[in-house]
């Protein structure tokens, strides 16, 4: 089994919205729709609050969680929303009738009707790039190197992000971007600060089993956040 997913290390996220912009560019997401959006959670008082600066906050990138028991898939009357072999949830745009039943069925409000094509769309985990060995654009362009992509069944420490390769062969005639980029990956296990299992969170799970993970250390995870 494979279950592709993304892990975001929230202690590294700087809220630059690079992921949001990269997603829009890579996938041609319509104005007003966000396959990837960022919430600011807080500021809230720390547990030992004394002074006004005893506050904390974090940024929370929200996108399709590629749920294990995806409610959007079970309500879809056409079967256009599907759970794929790689664990991602995809929408067949030839089959979708744009009934939008899946839109309120998703607990995280990540589905949008494309007003031009009249079908519903959402994060695809950049299947067009992943199929060719690439990474989702939000992972690729993350300004804080906070996002990692991989197979949940192999453990989140194996999830990968791009790394900069400096030891290139300067004698070689090939200075192309691709030659530097290939294989230049760093794993979460190699890069991230230590974290405990209790630091790994999912969004509120109503039995839908969100596959996406978030790491948050030394701060209180706020559940019950509104995503609409």
């Amino acid at each position: 089994m494979t279950q592709y997913a993304i892990v975001t290390d929230l202690n590294r996220c700087v809220g630059c919205m690079g992921c949001t912009v990269a997603c829009k560019v890579a996938n041609g997401v319509e104005v007003g729709s966000y396959w990837e959006k960022l919430l600011r959670i807080g500021p809230t008082r720390k547990p030992n609050y004394v002074h006004t600066n005893d506050v904390e906050m974090y940024y929370l990138p929200i996108h399709c969680q590629h749920c294990l028991n995806a409610p959007c898939v079970s309500v879809c009357p056409t079967g256009a929303s599907k759970k794929m072999d790689d664990g991602t949830v995809q929408i067949d745009k030839e089959q979708c009738i744009g009934c939008q039943a899946c839109v309120p069925a998703c607990p995280y409000g990540v589905r949008y009707l494309n007003e031009t094509t009249n079908v519903v769309e959402k994060c695809t985990l950049c299947e067009q790039l992943v199929e060719q060995g690439g990474l989702p654009q939000c992972v690729e362009q993350c300004g804080g190197r906070a996002r990692f992509f991989g197979d949940l069944d192999k453990g989140i420490e194996t999830f990968e992000a791009p790394a900069i390769q400096y030891d290139m062969d300067r004698e070689s005639a090939d200075h192309s971007y691709e030659s530097q980029q290939q294989g230049c990956r760093v794993t979460l296990g190699e890069l991230a600060e230590p974290y405990a299992d209790s630091d790994v969170y999912t969004l509120d799970d109503a039995g839908n089993g969100p596959a996406v993970r978030y790491i948050l250390r030394n701060r209180e995870w706020k559940d019950g956040v509104s995503f609409a």
Binding site: S74, P77, T78, Q95, C96, I97, G98, C99, N118, V119
Partner: peptide
């Protein structure tokens, strides 16, 4: 529904 031309697709997923 936004695609009336494909309306009969909506009988495709019996578990829905």
């Amino acid at each position: 529904t936004s695609h009336w031309d494909r309306l009969f697709n909506s009988f495709a997923h019996l578990a829905s």
